[in-house]
Design a binder for these strands. Structure first.
Length: 431
RNA sequence: GCCGGGGUAGGGUAGGCGGUCAUCCUACGGGACUGUGGAUCCUGUGACUCGGGUUCGAAUCUCGGCCCCGGCCCCA
C-alpha cells in the first residue's frame, strides 16, 4: 500500500459510524433536555491559549505549527479552553448561567494504545456562572443520565472537593509547589506511594500530623455516608469548613436529583490551580488502563484568561471510550441494513421504469437502492441479498406488460405480483 | 519516552526448523444459465508491511524503519 493512515488515527466505516451517530444523538438529547445548546469552535487555536491553561510543558503533547504568516497555532487538545475563550470573546454579557455543549475531535501527540488515539472525540459541556452545589449537582446528574441512557451499566462516579485538601495545605502552611507535588501523588491513588512520599527518606513535606491525616483521607472512598468520617477527621481545621459545607450541600442536592450511585473519593485530585471546587471522574473498570470515560469539575479558567471571575462547571466525555464502554457492556445497538428496498431491473427495457419506481419510493422516505451497473439476474439477487434489504422489486418486461412487478420478501423468499400503482402501498404495509 | 506481542489478496486466515505452483473462507469478474437463477459447480483477478543483512536461494533467519495490539509513563 502506497499510503497509510497517520499513526493514532482511524477510519470509521458504515456500521461503526451508525453506532457512533446513535450514541451521539442520545447524548445530544440528554444535554438538550437539560437546556444546553450546542456550540462549535475551531479545530485549531492560538498555541498560547493552551499553554496559558496547562503550562509550557504540554507543547510536547500538542500538534502545533506556524501558519504562513508565522502565527503560532495548535490543534486543540481539549475544548474547555476554547469555550472559555469564546465566552470572553462573545458571551460575557449573556445572561447567566450559560449552558453549552460541544462535540468534536481533539488532537494529542501521544503514544496510541487502547482507548487512546491521536485524533479522538470529546463530547462535553460547560455550565458558566451558576452557584456551586446546585450547578454541580445538575451537571453530575446529567453525566449520570448520559451514561445510563447509553447503556453503560458498570460506570462508577467518583467525586471529590479539592477545598478539603487545599484547606489542609493552607492550615499547615504548605506552599503551592509542594502542594502540587503532593496532589500528584494523591491522584495516583496508591497509599504506599503516598506513604513513601510523605514519610520516606526524602518527604515532600515534613509534617507528621498532615501526613497522618492525608494517609487516612486517601482511604476514604465510599458512598455519601463516608462524609461523616471525613467531617470528623478534618472539621477541626477551619480552612476546610467551607469545602465541607459545599460537599454536604452537593450530597443533598444529588439526592434530590436522584443520583445515588456515586463515591466520595478524596483521591480524585488535580494539580492545576484553577480548579476551585468539586472534581469528578467516571470510570468503567472493564476498559482496563484507559478506564476513565469522563472528567470534570468546577474551575475559574475565565479569570486565568483575563476575563472577570466567573466560575464554571463542566465535564467532557471521551467519546471513543464511551463507545468501548457500551461495547463492553454488550449494549452496542445492532445496526440495521442501510437500505430497505432494492429495485432490480431484470430486462434491459424495464430499466427506465425501474428508476421511476425507485424515485417514488425514495419520495416516501423508503431507503431504496437501484442497480446502477447493469447486473445480470443472478447478480441482482445476490447483491440485494448482501445489502440485507427487506424487499426486492423485480421489474421484468413480462410482468410489466400486465402493469405488474414481482415483489420478493428477501427474508422469507415469498414473492407476489403487485400492480405497479400499488407498489408503494404494498411496501409501506409490509415494511 | 520505556517494555512485550504482532503485520500474509479488499476483509478474515493457514503455513513458517530456508528450497516445486503460498492454504482456505469471503468479496469481486467470467461461465454452466437471455425471467425464478439469492443454491451448486467450473473458472479468473488478487497478498507474504518497507528497507538492509546472511544465503546458491528468504514470507520463513537477522537488523532497522513504519504501522497495529497490549502494558507502563503521562493524562489538560
Amino acid at each position: 500500500m502506497e499510503f497509510t493512515r497517520p499513526r493514532g488515527t482511524r477510519d470509521f466505516l458504515f456500521d461503526e459510524m451508525r453506532q457512533r451517530s446513535e450514541a451521539e444523538n442520545t447524548l445530544r438529547e440528554v444535554f438538550e433536555n437539560y437546556g444546553y445548546g450546542e456550540v462549535k469552535t475551531p479545530l485549531f487555536e492560538e498555541l498560547k491559549l493552551f499553554t496559558t491553561k496547562s503550562g509550557e510543558e504540554i507543547i510536547d503533547q500538542l500538534y502545533n505549527f506556524k501558519d504562513k504568516s508565522d502565527r503560532e497555532l495548535a490543534l486543540r487538545p481539549e475544548v474547555t479552553a476554547a469555550i472559555s475563550r469564546l465566552y470572553i470573546n462573545e458571551m460575557s454579557k449573556t445572561a447567566k448561567p450559560i449552558k453549552l455543549y460541544y462535540y468534536g475531535s481533539c488532537f494529542r501527540y501521544e503514544r496510541p494504545q487502547k482507548g487512546r488515539f491521536r485524533q479522538f472525540w470529546q463530547f462535553g459541556c460547560e455550565l458558566i456562572g451558576a452557584k456551586s452545589p446546585e450547578g454541580e449537582g445538575e451537571v453530575i446528574s446529567m453525566a449520570n443520565e448520559s451514561i445510563i441512557k447509553l447503556g453503560i451499566t458498570t460506570a462508577e462516579i467518583h467525586i471529590n472537593h479539592l477545598g478539603i485538601i487545599r484547606g489542609l495545605f493552607e492550615h499547615f502552611g504548605i506552599d503551592k509547589e509542594k502542594s502540587r507535588e503532593v496532589m500528584v501523588v494523591v491522584d495516583k491513588g496508591d497509599k504506599q506511594l503516598l506513604e513513601d512520599a510523605l514519610k520516606g527518606d526524602e518527604p515532600i513535606i515534613d509534617n507528621e500530623e498532615l501526613a497522618d491525616i492525608l494517609l487516612v483521607l486517601i482511604d476514604m472512598v465510599g458512598d455519601s455516608s463516608i462524609f461523616e468520617d471525613i467531617k470528623n477527621l478534618v472539621f477541626d481545621y477551619e480552612e476546610c469548613r467551607t469545602a465541607l459545607d459545599e460537599l454536604q450541600e452537593l450530597i443533598t442536592t444529588l439526592k434530590s436529583f436522584n443520583v445515588l450511585n456515586y463515591n466520595i473519593n478524596l483521591g480524585v485530585a488535580r494539580g492545576l490551580d484553577y480548579y476551585t471546587g468539586i472534581v469528578f471522574e467516571i470510570y468503567v473498570p472493564e476498559l482496563g488502563s484507559q478506564k476513565q470515560v469522563c472528567g470534570g469539575g468546577t474551575y475559574s479558567l475565565i479569570k486565568l484568561f483575563g476575563g472577570e471571575d466567573v466560575v464554571s462547571t463542566g465535564f467532557a466525555f471521551g467519546f471513543d471510550r464511551l463507545m468501548d464502554a457500551i461495547e463492553a457492556c454488550g449494549n452496542l445497538p445492532t445496526v440495521k441494513p442501510k437500505v430497505d428496498v432494492y429495485v432490480a431491473p431484470i430486462s434491459d427495457d424495464t430499466r427506465q421504469l425501474s428508476y421511476t419506481i425507485a424515485q417514488n419510493l425514495r419520495c416516501e422516505n423508503i431507503k431504496t437502492e437501484i442497480d446502477l451497473s447493469r447486473k445480470k439476474f443472478k447478480k441482482l439477487l445476490s447483491y440485494a441479498n448482501n445489502l440485507g434489504v427487506r424487499f426486492t422489486v423485480l421489474v421484468g418486461s413480462k410482468d410489466v406488460e400486465n402493469n405488474q412487478v414481482t415483489i420478493k420478501n428477501m427474508q422469507t423468499g415469498y414473492q407476489e405480483l403487485i400492480d405497479i400503482d400499488n407498489i408503494l402501498s404494498y411496501i409501506k404495509e409490509n415494511l
